[in-house]
């Protein structure tokens, strides 16, 4: 892995220097796209924690929306700092996740059925946001009350570079968590294989608990992603932050990149965002809907022709060796 490390370090250095590299008039735009990629990669990574366990959630929009709305509402109404609001959001979200995931596990709601239950949860959250329009703004959305000046406490900054570094750190933290979970999953898989029957049964119980933990972690990280997104965009809307559309986009990006590898979600997210931006720039305001049409068409083609994801397929070719990530996927 020596050359890999070198490339990684170099890439990180470039990312760290991103805001000071000469980019002409493009800087703001490039930073904006990169921030989006970091935040959505973080969210995609959170989704993949569950996805690789066979827990295909189509309801992560619910967690995202709950996170984003919780901080925004707490800040707007009570002036509660997003730092604390974020903690509240993550806690609320992981409770919601547990309330849904525990009975799912208990009553063996798996596969397509799990996907449909989570989809329903996503819709419930989206509709609740719309229904409570008196204080959520309904389908018109809600703007974050602007802080009079840059403030760490309010998590608001006029300079995009602050958000850039913040989201870079967030993304790296996401990767670190993903890596830690991957390692402990690999260990759990080893134990399950190594032990005898009765011990395996107790490991089975252990696996259920582990799944609950993973689900709560995945949900609360997604909520944190929602917080980051809301603080950066300073506007929340039920259709962009909850519901099927956004949930599907998250899953798309992850599957496209490959959910069994550390960088898969990032690669997929970067690609879908870059693609979306490219199509948006090409078509601009002409041919409304065309950009999304091509986007949808490409997604179908990707899914058909790259079933293991881009990064996954590439790495299969390059490495070909069973890695902890693969091993852990056997736990499902």
């Amino acid at each position: 892995m020596r050359p890999g490390r070198v490339v990684g370090a170099a890439l990180l250095a470039v990312l760290a220097l991103g805001p000071v590299l000469p980019m002409g008039g493009m800087r703001q735009y490039v930073l904006h796209v990169l921030i989006q990629i970091f935040v959505w990669s973080f969210i995609g990574g959170a989704w993949s924690l569950m996805g690789r366990f066979g827990l295909v959630s189509l309801g992560h929009g619910a967690f995202l929306g709950l996170g984003a709305y919780t901080v925004t509402l707490l800040w707007n109404a009570y002036g509660l700092t997003p730092w604390l609001g974020g903690v509240v959001a993550a806690a609320l979200t992981s409770v919601l996740a547990l309330v849904v995931a525990y009975p799912c596990s208990r009553f063996q709601v798996v596969g397509h059925y799990f996907a449909l239950v989570t989809l329903a949860v996503g819709e419930v959250v989206r509709l609740l946001i719309i229904a409570e329009r008196n204080w959520t703004g309904g389908s018109l959305g809600l703007s974050l009350r602007a802080s009079p000046h840059d403030s760490v406490l309010a998590m608001q900054f006029a300079d995009k570079r602050v958000f850039y570094y913040a989201s870079l750190v967030l993304w790296l933290a996401g990767l670190w968590i993903w890596y830690r979970v991957d390692r402990s999953m690999a260990r759990a898989a080893m134990e399950a294989i190594g032990e005898d029957e009765t011990a395996a049964a107790s490991v089975g119980i252990h696996v259920t608990r582990f799944k609950m933990g993973i689900t709560m972690l995945s949900a609360s990280l997604t909520a944190v992603g929602g917080v980051a997104y809301a603080q950066y965009i300073t506007y929340v809307n039920p259709d962009t932050l909850a519901g099927i559309g956004v949930s599907l986009r998250i899953v798309f990006a992850v599957v496209l990149g490959g959910m069994y590898s550390l960088l898969g979600p990032t690669v997929g997210t970067a690609l879908t965002i870059a693609l979306g931006e490219y199509l948006r720039v090409v078509f601009g305001l002409r041919l409304i809907g065309m950009a999304e049409t091509i986007y949808g068409l490409l997604l179908i083609l990707f899914i058909i022709f790259l079933p293991a994801g881009i990064y996954g397929s590439l790495r299969d070719v390059v490495a070909g060796l069973a890695r902890p990530a693969r091993l852990a996927s056997g736990l499902r």
Partner: peptide, 13 residues
Amino acid sequence: LLATGGLLFFLQS
């Protein structure tokens, strides 16, 4: 799921 999800985006757009 995603392949028909892609179709959803495609048809809507």
